[in-house]
Design a protein around this nucleic acid. Sequence first.
DNA 1: TGTAAAATTTAGTCTTGCCTAAATTATTTT
DNA 2: AAAATAATTTAGGCAAGACTAAATTTTACA
Lengths: 220, 220
Amino acid sequence: MKPSTSIQDYLKQIYELTENGSPASTNDLARELNIKPASVTGMIQKLASEKPALIEYQKHQGVTLTSAGKKAALEVIRHHRLLETWLVQTLGYSWDEVHEEAERLEHVISEDFERRIAAALDHPTRDPHGELIPTADLKMPLDDSTPLSALRKNQTGKILCIKGADADLLRHLDELGLTPNTMIEVTDYSPFDHNLTIKVGKKNHVLGLSITSKIFVEEK
Amino acid sequence: MKPSTSIQDYLKQIYELTENGSPASTNDLARELNIKPASVTGMIQKLASEKPALIEYQKHQGVTLTSAGKKAALEVIRHHRLLETWLVQTLGYSWDEVHEEAERLEHVISEDFERRIAAALDHPTRDPHGELIPTADLKMPLDDSTPLSALRKNQTGKILCIKGADADLLRHLDELGLTPNTMIEVTDYSPFDHNLTIKVGKKNHVLGLSITSKIFVEEK
DNA sequence: TGTAAAATTTAGTCTTGCCTAAATTATTTT
DNA sequence: AAAATAATTTAGGCAAGACTAAATTTTACA
């Protein structure tokens, strides 16, 4: 049976917190979901005792997704990213506005709806932020991007993805023209503070690590 | 604050059951909402004691909407009908498929989303079934349609709306070409059983009262 | 290594919205 | 008008999913 909206939110969040390979802690989950840690423990115990189990869990050790849990998480993430793409393309949302709307819609659309928007968008592989969209058979495509912070003077690339930016930063990057699919060139690098000077269009911008580590590019 | 999904469903249903002018009974609500009558009583008491009250209620007398309740109901109905229109126009749903999808989406879309689809559709006044769409300021437009069953031999009209048909009947009417905006002519009337012979395109169909009373036309 | 701080879990409570069973009120039939 | 039936309400319960306060475990640091 289809997991509740709450459970879908937990699974999605666990997926994201465990992408680095390490288990997700009760506290991290609580922070990300805006829920008290005690409540998270309760839900964790429930998810671990579902059959089939959706997460792997041992007291005080954090949680990881089982394959059933990962599948359910990817389903929600696919919904979310297809919806964002579609809202931007068909209703003129800007890429920094769509998140909240998709956050609510992702839980209620049918598989039929999912198929229809995927087809209407011609089966996109990345959403407006550049995040990879899980495939229809619920696999996450391989990510071939590099953080902009890893580039050095004279290297060029195409922006693929902006990760982990809040609404303010998204708007700021939009104003600078730093959006997915834009070509950029590193015109200077400061080894001291890791600042990069980036040429985008005809303008140069000096960006610190807190920004360049959130921009992912395909090196050319 | 925004009413819960459950409350929105109650209000929408009460709106529809009271369109005839008489209050909605506990039993009718229970039947339409697939909920037990005892549960309906509980919710009714809650809705009547909200401030401001959303319904008018006296024990054993049925319920009607207050103006606050009607406003909330029209908001949901506007969402539903705009969504149906939009799903049909942009995602190729057929008019007999959209109901369920809209039923879930109507509760989660933002006012911004509502404005965007209304604008994208050029502010339609009727949904794919022909039902009137409440205006942006939450008034229900006047209905200028007549039941097809009231027409007699040689009268002609344009189909405006199909009301209260289940999925089977919707598909059947679709096959006969009896969809909103179609021109029809009454070529015969049987006073005995109230059957009407209707010419639609080049074909004639004999329709009983159970069908003609669900088709609403603009008489020409 | 022992202790303080941080993280986690347990225990008990609350709200929402549904349920069943039983009691009450209204309506219909004889 | 009384009896039978139908509609409605009351009472008591349950599951989901959140909360607070208190107990426990783990980790970190002196």
